[in-house]
Design a protein around this nucleic acid. Sequence first.
DNA 1: GATCTATGTAGAT
DNA 2: TCTACCTAGATCG
Length: 277
Amino acid sequence: MPEGHTLHRLARVHRKHFRGAPVAVSSPQGKFAAGAAEVDGRPLLRAEAHGKHLFHVYDRDLVVHVHLGLFGSFTEGAVPVPPTRGQLRMRMVGEQHWADLRGPTACEVLRDAEVKALRARLGPDPLRRDADPQRAWQRLQRSQAPLAALLMDQRVISGVGNVYRAEILFRHGLDPMLPGRELRREQWDALWADLVALMRDGLRTGRIDTVRPADDPTVTGRAPRRDRHGGEVYVYRRHGQPCLVCGTLLPRVVLAGRNLYWCPTCQPAATGISAAG
DNA sequence: GATCTATGTAGAT
DNA sequence: TCTACCTAGATCG
């Protein structure tokens, strides 16, 4: 379930379970065998996330970089370690805990310079204290690309994925196709503040919940439900169902190879009115 | 058992 | 705009 909050959560768990003590690192599957051998047996110094990227720092020039991609996942537990099963890219075993990594897009050892170069390409991360939202605002201002594309562009903002994109646009009544440069400053400020709040909530709970209490189906009298990904949302993967706020049947389109979910009534397209001033 | 799907990204065209 | 890649669980016959 990899959007930014998932990676920050993993970084936190890995710090708690592995930092400061030697970690046995291996690659039962073999695809990360050489990298694992480089860090095997070293103490983990730091673990941190930037956007959807996770970094395990064993030494300045021995950093395991993990990107989960669309379906990578970690599983964790307390020792003893279970038998290996399936395609296990990396296994970490500490004094008390183990962690298994499957299906990542990236699992590699990077040197400090490579980590810096990678991070330099990432936009501000709403979950990092060092985030500078002004940088994202400047990119939005220079772009005619639709907001829906810009929010998913990790060079603009890092950590936002398809769920947060859809939900944040809904919560702010923004048309996904609105060109970035037509977003007003106060709209951006509200959007960023909301992203910070929602993603912090996701980091705390491990779920993406975006529905305001007043719109909660259990409060409004509609049947309670649980989305397949485990959170309560307005539009993500709710195509074909009625909007929780206005009842419009929700559409879905593919934009830049990804499913886009929104409510055309609650997030109306800009018309000649706004174009005229 | 086959097929579909997914909270992602890089690289080719 | 497209294709490839990474994996497992859900869904379809």
